[in-house]
Design a protein around this nucleic acid. Sequence first.
DNA 1: GCCTTTTTCAACCAAAAGTTTAAACTAACC
DNA 2: GGTTAGTTTAAACTTTTGGTTGAAAAAGGC
Lengths: 217, 217
Amino acid sequence: MMDPVSAQNRRGDTALKILAAARDVFSERGFAGTTVDEIARRAGVNKATLYYQIGDKQTLYAGVILDVMGSAADTTASEIQNATSPEEKLRTYIRNVAEAMDRNPWMPPIMLREMAAGGRNFPETVVLGLARIFTILGEIIAEGVRRGVFVPAPPPLIHLMIVGAFAFFKTSAPLRERQAGLGGDWPAGEDRVSGTVATEVERLVLRALRKTPGEAG
Amino acid sequence: MMDPVSAQNRRGDTALKILAAARDVFSERGFAGTTVDEIARRAGVNKATLYYQIGDKQTLYAGVILDVMGSAADTTASEIQNATSPEEKLRTYIRNVAEAMDRNPWMPPIMLREMAAGGRNFPETVVLGLARIFTILGEIIAEGVRRGVFVPAPPPLIHLMIVGAFAFFKTSAPLRERQAGLGGDWPAGEDRVSGTVATEVERLVLRALRKTPGEAG
DNA sequence: GCCTTTTTCAACCAAAAGTTTAAACTAACC
DNA sequence: GGTTAGTTTAAACTTTTGGTTGAAAAAGGC
């Protein structure tokens, strides 16, 4: 009998290779647009191995969704703790979303396609993660309002504006390259979002939320 | 020989029926996810008729894209003229995007999926329309800055925030129904965007752009 | 050398999908 | 009423795809 540890390792290795390839292809072509053969080809693995290791296309996709969309909530939640003022928390929040998308470039396309499908393929844990993010944002804003530095605003809308801007910006790289003027001041080929873009979004969102001196509320 | 008029009419009729069905199915399932059979079935037409009238799946999809994404720029451009102040123009801009999405519910899913694909299927005219919208928004902001009522801001980012918020809100209706707390204060089942949502976005964007009394710039 | 797990190879199947062909139908026109 | 161009249909054809299988080979610890 094979050593269970190294057996586990080998199993884990190929499974990870397959997951990574699936993540690539699914994020490029969407669920219906990808073929299992293509995933196996890119993973450098036989199709039968893929079925042996993981299962059918649906199972594979579910794994990718969880992998790509699942981690966002946790990291955001933990990092917010370190910030002190509501302004800093909000900045951290925005910067976190931006960094998550740069670190995880598969997220924007998959998120866009899944939202186009009404999010019906999101597993329960992902939806709960989303709800938690909204709660966090809601608490940040509520605290700001309580302290008299923010005006009230609907958290889901703020979140959608932030995420929408980042996701669209990232996926629009080919468009910006194709048509001058679509990118504004950004240098062509820049598809990172945690730099200038995030700074700009921070500025805009904070201007929108910050209570101006003399404002009622 | 058939009367060319009624012939044209019949041809136009079935072609429109097919286009409408294609629009429905493509917006629900995306390009790769839809079958030509399903389109023909929903159009109440034989599959061969579809090929006779329009062509293959690609051609059909190109027609839908043009139909769904093509009109946005023109209507926006014309309506902006009527507004006077930069503030009013910006409000009109935002309200226009919102109304376009309510009037044309196929747009958000198709836009999201196409953006996920890097906009590579957008025909030239659609991309030019997008560029024109950015130009319009840029002029509104520039005028506001010149008159001392706005602070400078990157037009593409503003646009992406607006469109992102609206598109995500519209497609997230099933998610909001599934999970309480995702919708904030909005009543469940409300998926219109040109009402409260647009008002809220107007408020936020104007707060972000408006120069506060005493602000330099 | 034996045994278990893993991977490959090849083929297969059934279902589905895109496309085409030839025949049937429709309606104006002589 | 028959002709004819335009239109629609039924049915087939071709290719692709997802899924499965069975046997063989490789890998690697014992």
